[in-house]
Every structure is written in structure tokens, then in C-alpha cells.
Nucleic acid binder design. Structure first.
Length: 597
RNA sequence: GCCGGGGUAGCUCAGAGGCAGAGCAACUGAUUCGUAAUCAGUAGGUCGCGGGUUCAACUCCCGCCCCCGGCUCCA
């Protein structure tokens, strides 16, 4: 992982510990003004740290009682007074020793602790009016520059993120350069609430959770359609790429996990149970068992690469407080694969894999971004192996014309990797795919071999990769991305036939049957309700197409086509509607184009 | 796991020691309807679970489970 803004903030070392861009500076200054307001209202409170973060800022405070929503409103009022007073931010420097004395005298124990933990001889402080804080800066010139901000929430947070440390109270806020940006951000927060996959999952009957199985979804018929369509999508692509699908046991003897190293490093996250005196565990990952499949026979250099894919159902005993809808679960299904190749094949495999990833996400209108994580300090394997693996990953990225960030030292101890985030329709990032080169872990621990051209056994390189990441999380992501209005190929119900009145039920049945025969997931809504009611219902259920049929349509063999976008595409011949819909579904098109002239 | 907030009808939520409530959804009937909500009626509950206090607990106390927002972790 690259150092986070929080980490840099805490260390106060280097030239620019805090991101000096105008927006980050503004947010950072806003957090100082918030701390100033808090100290005015609650003089006994001690301050910890307050960095800029994505979309805003926070500040942590030591205080007996939590902040209430009313407190936040009062703090915000005081902040606006401070802004109005147009106070300058003033920088001053002092020796670290003096700074320690300065903050100790004020009882600011957290500042003292930070200062004691750093190496710099001199440090900077920033002062605005009656508030002074240890800070690397930079800051805006005057408080009047803060125009568009809002406090959002308060919650507990540990000092330095360590649960053994005291709990502090954190206030989150957001700040922007303009009111329009702030309004836009607040709109996105509102919109995100409306799109919450937990809410939509219930409303659209996709999945549900019951307290008998925390962290594990029950897939309802509608949601299972999504699972099946995604599986079908994945299998089509992997079949075309020469993958071979396997499936390995979920309940596995502890011996395997001792061999793989999971028992030592990951045991706390594994569900264990005893069977006839032996300890078994539900698999948290699929790699060790894929190695068994590899090892099943003697492999020649000619057999490689071997690409074993698996819809691996994994269980991880996540701490109860971390579970969140489909995004963080205890049972999930990875679209996993392990590619076993010769070192000289690594480059081509990675290039093909990135091409696959790039194409994959086009279907969902999700924008991927790539991060190359290189060798960490603690690692296994030779410099030559690492050089080869890192340059192969980089060449694969460049070969595909992909922009990427570097994450120096962020790789696994067994090899470098590329992590892939996607940005959704609201601009939120989600980690989905990962491509990890494994130089040593599986190859060494499981003694993987192939017989090379010289007749000697050699170690293959393994690539661990997942593209959706997990079906559960991915469905959570796309539910929010599409706001539940899935493209036709994914929509649980693709079309609803709505007879204008029961007089036209026969023709409606014919239309319905034609659609079903063409494998369109269609429903007939012949309920005893007015057309307007049934249209509204289909709309609320986000059904892509409504096919309204009455006398005119029955006579002419047409349907009146109304996509959920609200347009009226008028009377379209039934044959054409069926053809358009099947084409739209087969091509996994993003837009609703059937019947568009 | 920790901190804070919650759990009352399918959903959204009100109620606070003394008869369990509303809107929407559901069901039944009437209406036969042309592009986002027809009218009327009916039914619906172990107030998360267990214990305690009390003449009486959805309400107060204790323990547990689950959910939400964070911390930490993460596909």
C-alpha cells in the first residue's frame, strides 16, 4: 500500500507531508478551523490529528462524551464565524524540543507523542487566531478562503488506528473550492443512499440476509439471475481464452493449510471444525487446492501454460463489525484462476490477461484503473526473479496502452501484483480485480515442477487472478452503479406485457409466449389494475421494456413499446421487438435500443 | 472485536409502565381502464431473543443476537 495521507500527516517528515494541491490544502485548513471551533466550544478537549482525505477531512479529538448531531451544528456555526472573521494562518517554526515543551504545557499529549516520535530538529506550527497546531502545512492564507464546507458525521476512532490505544472522537467533514462542487458532492451522497445495494436488493427481491447467517446472502430468484448471467459471461470469455474450469473442496483438512502457510498466518480468519478427531477448515482461498490439480501429473514445458479457473466459494471469518451487505461478507465466490507458466511465458500471459480485464469491464461501463505494486522489503525469491516479474507486469500494462500508478513496496512477499479498481457511475472507486505473480509461494511450498527442454525439473511461475473479484461484491457494486436499472441482459425481468384491459388478454398471452420462446425473461401483468398503475409498478421494478397491447396492436400484430426511460417508441411489429430484444441481450448492450427507429 | 446509534406489520416509521398504531404493499370485491398510483372493504404483530424488577413490561434493569455509521481488516 502506498502511504496514506493520514500516515504522512502523522509523520511530519519530508518536504510535503501533506498534499499541497489547492483542494487538499483547503480541506486541511478547514480541519484546523474545525479544531479551533471545537476548542472554543469544548475547551477541555485535546486534539489528535486532522488530515485532508478523499472528498474532505477529519479531525480526531479526545473527549469524554461523543459529539451529538447538535454539537456538529454548533461547531459548524462557530466555524462560519471564524471564516467570517477572516483570520490569517500564520506559520512559525521552533525546535522540536521547544515544541514538545510548548504542547506539554498545554496538555496536548497527542502532539507531544507525535513530536517525540519524529526525527526532525525543527518543526512548524500554524496559528489562526486563538488556535495553534503542530502542522507541516501548507495552509490557505486566510480563513475567509473557506467557503464551501459541511460537517457530516462523528464516530469513534482509535489513536493511531490501533485498537489498544484510547478511542477518540472523529468528526468528518467535506470541503470544496466552490459551492457548486459542494452541492454536487452532497447530491452524490444522497444519490448513493438511494442506490444502496442493500436497499435495492430488498426492493427488487435480489437477495436477503437473515440473522442466522450473518455475512452470507440468501440469493432470491431475481438475484440468482444476476449470478447466473455473470457466471455465463465469465465462462464464455474464459473458454475463449483456453481456461479449464475446476472445482475444489470447501472443507479441507488442516494439513493442507499447514503446508500452504495459511495455518500460520491466516488461521484467525478461518472457520474450523472437528471431524472425527481431525481439524478441518472451510477454505478461505483456492490456491493450495489448485496446486493439487497441477501436481496431479507430471507436466512438460509443452503443457504450459495451464490455466485453471474456479468459481471458488470461500469462507473468511471476518470480524463481526466489518460485515457490510454484499460488499463485505463471510462467504463469497471468487472468479478465481491460477495460471501456471514457464518464466519465459509470463510476459505473454500477463499481456493477454490485462487485455482480458480491459475488455471485461467495457461491458459494464466501469472505468478500471491500475496500480503496479512492486517488491516489498520482506520478500522471498531472487533479484532476477523480481526483476523479470516486475518488468513483465509493467510491459504488459504498457503493451495494452494502460495508464497506471506505482505502489513501490506494495507487492506480496511472494511477488509483485497489479490491483485494479473500477470507478462507478457516481465516481466511487472499488477494488475488484487483482493480478498477482507468485514466484515462490505455491511453487516452493507445493514443490511445483515442469520438465523443461533440457529434461530437468524447473519451477513454474504462478499467476493468481480474479477479475470480478467476488460475485457477491461485484453484484453489490453494479447494483449501485446501475441504481438497480440493469442493462437488459442482466435484468431479472427483461420485459413486461401489459394488456390495456382484460379484453386483450389473448393477444397479450401470445406476445408473452413469443418472448418466452425467444428466451426473453418476460412477465405478463394481467392484474386487475389500471394501465397507469401497472406501468408505474414495472417502472419501480426497473423492468427495461413495457409492451402495451390493446385493440390496435392486436389487429396489426404490433406492441406499443415503452422502455423504462419513459420514451414512447410507438407501435412496433412484434417480430421486430423479439428480434431487437434478443439481439440486445445477446450483445450484452448497455443501452435500451429495441424499437428505436 | 472496539466506540456510537438502532431492531415495533412485508416496507418506511410513530408510540413509551396500564387495549399495539399510520402510510405504502398484500388479500377480497366493484370498476375494464391507452403510458408513473381507481374506489371500497379485509387481514396482518411472541414490539430481535433470554432472564430480571413490577399487580402489570414493547416501555425499566442485565445478558445475548442481528443491523447501521466509523476504527481496524479486506475479494
Amino acid at each position: 500500500m502506498a502511504e496514506s495521507e493520514e500516515d504522512r500527516h502523522l509523520k511530519l517528515t519530508g518536504d510535503f507531508d501533506c498534499d499541497p494541491t489547492p483542494l487538499s490544502t483547503l480541506r486541511h485548513s478547514t480541519s484546523h478551523v474545525m479544531a479551533q471551533a471545537v476548542k472554543r466550544l469544548f475547551p477541555e478537549v485535546k486534539v489528535a490529528i486532522g488530515p485532508a482525505i478523499e472528498d474532505g477531512f477529519y479531525y480526531d479529538f479526545a473527549k469524554g462524551e461523543p459529539f451529538t448531531p447538535e454539537d456538529l451544528a454548533r461547531i459548524e456555526d462557530v466555524m462560519r464565524e471564524i471564516v467570517k472573521a477572516d483570520i490569517p494562518f500564520e506559520r512559525q517554526e521552533m525546535s522540536r524540543r521547544d515544541a514538545i515543551a510548548f504542547f506539554r504545557e498545554r496538555g496536548e499529549r497527542f502532539k507531544v507523542e507525535i513530536l517525540e516520535g519524529i526525527e526532525a530538529d525543527r518543526v512548524s506550527l500554524y496559528k489562526q487566531g486563538d488556535f495553534i497546531d503542530l502542522c507541516r502545512g501548507p495552509h490557505v492564507a486566510r480563513t475567509s478562503e473557506l467557503k464551501a464546507f459541511k460537517l457530516l458525521s462523528s464516530s469513534g476512532a482509535y489513536w493511531r488506528g490501533d485498537e489498544k490505544n484510547p478511542m477518540l472522537w472523529r468528526i468528518y467533514g467535506t470541503a470544496w473550492l466552490t459551492q457548486a462542487d459542494l452541492d454536487q458532492h452532497l447530491w452524490r451522497l444522497e444519490e448513493a443512499k438511494k442506490r444502496d445495494h442493500r436497499k435495492l436488493g430488498r426492493e427488487l427481491d435480489l437477495f436477503d440476509f437473515y440473522d442466522v447467517a450473518p455475512g452470507a446472502p440468501f440469493w432470491l430468484p431475481n438475484g440468482m439471475i444476476l449470478v447466473r448471467e455473470l457466471e455465463k459471461f465469465a465462462r464464455e470469455r474464459l473458454d475463449a481464452q483456453g481456461y479449464q474450469e475446476i472445482s475444489t473442496p470447501m472443507l479441507v483438512n488442516k494439513k493442507l493449510w499447514e503446508q500452504s502457510g495459511h495455518w500460520e498466518l491466516y488461521r484467525d480468519n478461518m472457520f474450523q471444525l472437528e471431524v472425527e478427531g481431525e481439524i478441518f477448515s472451510l477454505k478461505p482461498m483456492n490456491c493450495p487446492e489448485a496446486s493439487y490439480v497441477y501436481k496431479r501429473s507430471l507436466r512438460s514445458y509443452r503443457d504450459l501454460p495451464l490455466r485453471f479457473s474456479e468459481m471458488g466459494r470461500d469462507h473468511r471469518n471476518e470480524r463481526s463489525g466489518t460485515l457490510t451487505g454484499l460488499v463485505r461478507v463471510r462467504q463469497f465466490t471468487q472468479d478465481d484462476a491460477h495460471l501456471f507458466c514457464r518464466p519465459d511465458q509470463l510476459q505473454d500471459e500477463l499481456t493477454a490477461l490485462l487485455d482480458l480485464v480491459r475488455e471485461w469491464y467495457k461491458t459494464f461501463d466501469l472505468q478500471p484503473s491500475y496500480k503496479l505494486a512492486t517488491r516489498p522489503e520482506k520478500r522471498l525469491g531472487t533479484a532476477e526473479q523480481w526483476d523479470n516479474a516486475e518488468s513483465s507486469l509493467e510491459k504488459a500494462l504498457r503493451g495494452n496502452g494502460l495508464a497506471f500508478e506505482m505502489d513501490p513496496g506494495g507487492g506480496n512477499f511472494y511477488g509483485p501484483k497489479i490491483d485494479i479498481d473500477v470507478r462507478d457511475a457516481l465516481g466511487r472507486g472499488w477494488q475488484v480485480a487483482t493480478i498477482q505473480v507468485d514466484l515462490t509461494m505455491l511453487p516452493e511450498r507445493f514443490q511445483l515442477e515442469f520438465i523443461d527442454t533440457d529434461g530437468q525439473p524447473k519451477r513454474p511461475v504462478v499467476i493468481h487472478r480474479a477479475i470480478f473479484g467476488s460475485y457477491e461484491r461485484f453484484i453489490g457494486i453494479i447494483t449501485e452503479h446501475y441504481a438497480g436499472a440493469f442493462p437488459t441482459w442482466l435484468a431479472p425481468v427483461q420485459a413486461r406485457v401489459l394488456p390495456v384491459s382484460e379484453k386483450f388478454i389473448d393477444y397479450a398471452r401470445t406476445v408473452h409466449r413469443r418472448l418466452r420462446d425467444a428466451r426473453v425473461r418476460a412477465e405478463l401483468d394481467d392484474r386487475n389494475e389500471k394501465l397507469g398503475y401497472r406501468i408505474r409498478d414495472a417502472q419501480v421494478r426497473k423492468v427495461p421494456y413495457m409492451l402495451v397491447v390493446g385493440g390496435r396492436e392486436a389487429e396489426q400484430g404490433t406492441v406499443s413499446l415503452r422502455p423504462r426511460t419513459g420514451e414512447d417508441r410507438g407501435a412496433v411489429a412484434l417480430d421486430r421487438v423479439v428480434a431487437d430484444l434478443t439481439a440486445e441481450i445477446a450483445s450484452r448492450a448497455a443501452d435500451l435500443t429495441a424499437g428505436r427507429s
